[in-house]
Design a protein around this nucleic acid. Structure first.
Lengths: 200, 200
DNA sequence: GTCTATAGCCAGATAGAC
DNA sequence: GTCTATCTGGCTATAGAC
């Protein structure tokens, strides 16, 4: 394995710091220290804090969005998609634990930036999946439910534990090991709960 | 109604700004402008940004925690507590929409502060409720489930929509009015979903 | 490409007049 | 209690030597 380029080292350090502390809480010096690189280099490669942040945001977004779309638009039943989504999402965020809270926080804190970003790069779009849910209800496969409420249940059950990681651990009084074990269990529990609620 | 005291005006402005932008994203000047008060007054009454932040954090926390404890430790069945919690929580955050994301964000970004704060003021403690769930399972009223997973489902379904407000609206492609209507519906949907999953 | 030094700005905090 | 003026430090960003 070759030594990573300076640009790579910077980006990786920036990902690590920005994802933990957010745009407003991050100092350029801290990224430089993490990358073991002179602070001036950050500006040489990325021009400004804003641009470096955007590279980080993009990277986080690109790792999630395409997979979500892929699952939702696959040729599979609603049940299969639920199982696939929960399994893939939890597996991914267990090794990238800061991405959900990072994305959620920055979208909340900077709606204007998010708006612009999503206009340019597209949001994960579950509308086709919503359509499919409506159809399976029509066909009598599923009990009637608002497809948007259905999706919201799915996202909530899957993502909240990571979005509110600190609070969850505090409330349930569990350490990180227990947390990770519970998340592994949830790969089964969540699809069971969801499917059980709409199965005819 | 009497004119609010200067201290009150500052605190209210601080709540408004801190809850939207977080500790790191907030400027003292912005709070002063919002309160229509000189910036020096903030320091006169609250000494430092950190202390003002702590007053805001405390205020948000105090509005939620005691009610949660009250519900969980009441003399009622598990089903009743679920219904009561969902209804009260959603009603409250619909008029205080920034509190969940604010608390979650600050706990994530500043675990050390959160640790200290909770050591001093206590976390909402659902352990007695967990106990009760275990007992009702024992008695054959409920299907077997890990009480912590049960609570996590309840919190996830109830809080995620508010914690990830911006993302949820973007993903589901809904405006604020639709969002609020969906939340009203969820007061019924969530207890149904939860109770249905554990009812014998 | 990489470094040092520093410009330029802005934020939190305080002194001191009223 | 309230204001103006200002200190002090820290931050982003850049100039310029190597």
């Amino acid at each position: 394995m070759q030594d990573p380029s300076t640009e790579q080292k910077i980006l990786e350090a920036a990902i690590s710091i920005f994802q933990k502390k957010g745009m407003a809480g991050t100092r350029m010096q801290e990224i430089a220290d993490e990358a073991k690189i002179n602070k001036a280099m950050l500006h040489y490669y990325f021009r400004s804090k804003q641009r470096l942040f955007e590279a980080v945001f993009m990277q986080a977004f690109q790792q999630l969005a395409p997979h979500v779309n892929e699952i939702f638009n696959a040729d599979a039943t609603v049940f299969e998609k639920v199982e696939s989504f929960v399994d893939k999402y939890i597996s991914f965020v267990l090794v990238n634990p800061y991405i959900p809270s990072f994305l959620i926080q920055e979208i909340n804190n900077n709606p204007k930036f998010a708006q612009t970003f999503f206009s340019a790069h597209g949001v994960p779009d579950p509308s086709q999946f919503e359509q499919q849910i409506a159809e399976e209800i029509q066909q009598g496969i599923l009990k009637p439910i608002d497809p948007k409420q259905f999706l919201l249940n799915l996202f909530s059950l899957t993502a909240f534990s990571f979005a509110a990681n600190g609070l969850v651990k505090g409330l349930l009084n569990i350490d990180n090991e227990t947390f990770m074990m519970m998340m592994e269990e949830r790969k089964k529990l969540i699809p069971e709960l969801i499917i059980n609620s709409i199965k005819r």
